[in-house]
Design a protein around this nucleic acid. Structure first.
Lengths: 208, 208
DNA sequence: CGGTATAGTTACAGACCGGTCACACCTCCG
DNA sequence: CGGAGGTGTGACCGGTCTGTAACTATACCG
């Protein structure tokens, strides 16, 4: 093992292979943690780079601006969300209703385990400037998610897939933001039962 | 009419009676407009005082800090929400179901006419610091609103008033934040029909 | 070994932030 | 008239923010 003067790991190979990622990836990783916890406007680039064990110049070599980093942050979050969805499909390959129920349960679990809300929605609220480049990205991400949920509902044999999707989207989104206002004992605690009721009522309408 | 050197209205009586309110009230009024549009963290005290036609010293004579002003801002918003609710009760004095339906329609109208979301929820998201004094106020306001909705549902003869309240709260809250992410054509457009369906399904469960 | 790309360091610019100070001003009321 | 209280003005403090510049150090590859 090779150490530098101050005894930190140093070789580029180490950075690539042994746990320590490239500065760019470390920056995005820490930006996710900090933006999530303190909000986008609540975290400066200095804080991010320090947490990532690097410095501001390196950040600005990889990103044109903080806004650029914000976009990368949002894409990274969306990527993870898609991954968990893929995992869901793999878990119940042929049972679409089970996938739908698991999605609801997963969303509810996410609400319970983390009171800081949805990164995408939070960003939409925090970035008030209408022409902000991230707003387009947010819209894209949310639209794709919605389309994917519609598709799932349709494949599950729901008669009005768009409508059930929207109902579930509103409930989940509402739960995440409501929990941040009232806390864990508020309406968000009932998300699963309410959502399951809604799904059931939509299934009843299907002659099957 | 008396004018000062620079030809603005000046007497204290004028401030009280002829449209121009006291500096304190003007500050809160402009804070509401600006916080709503640009977010709490997106507006400095200088901007507020300038919009209110006054100055920073006067602000700090009436409020201990910006946080103090934020709290007053939230209380002011909550006061207006209560007022519209009172108005609703006066409009349908004996028909609680009509009040409930009107509340949903009013909330939906609010969502449609204004894409910047609920001030209270936005503040909850923006103020990430857990010990922030405004967080307690937010919790109080939201809890009172919830209690009032529960009471209305109960008086309307709903069998599970808490459950319907939470369902509606999640839907409305979700609609407001979702609209800021996806825009007017997203799930929020279907808020009314979904909410009315939910109310109806809860009424069916009542033997009446 | 030498060239090139990447990363670290330090310092700085310019703007904005919340908050304070001293002082002048105005209006009302006794 | 004169004092008291609310208000306006401009300067200022210390801190933080995004973003840049110049220079150094390191690692990889031919």
């Amino acid at each position: 093992m090779i150490f530098s003067k101050d005894r930190r790991l140093l070789t580029k190979m180490d950075n690539l292979t042994v746990g320590r990622a490239r500065p760019r990836d470390r920056i995005v990783e820490k930006a996710r943690v900090l933006f999530h916890k303190y909000g986008i406007r609540g975290v400066g680039v200095d804080t991010i780079t320090e947490a990532a064990g690097t410095n501001k110049m390196t950040l600005y070599r990889h990103f044109d601006s903080k806004d650029d980093l914000i976009i990368e942050y949002l894409r990274s979050v969306a990527c993870d969300m898609n991954a968990t969805w893929d995992h869901l499909e793999a878990e119940y390959p042929d049972d679409k209703i089970a996938q739908l129920r698991a999605w609801v349960r997963g969303a509810a679990e996410c609400v319970v385990n983390d009171d800081r809300g949805c990164d995408i929605a939070n960003a939409a609220i925090e970035l008030t400037e209408n022409g902000h480049p991230a707003r387009r990205v947010i819209r894209e991400i949310k639209t794709k998610m919605r389309d994917r949920l519609i598709k799932l509902c349709r494949e599950a044999g729901i008669e009005q897939p768009e409508r059930l999707t929207d109902a579930l989207a509103l409930l989940v989104e509402g739960a995440r933001v409501n929990r941040r206002s009232i806390g864990p004992d508020g309406p968000s605690a009932r998300l699963v039962e309410i959502a399951e009721d809604v799904i059931e009522s939509f299934r009843k309408n299907c002659p099957d």
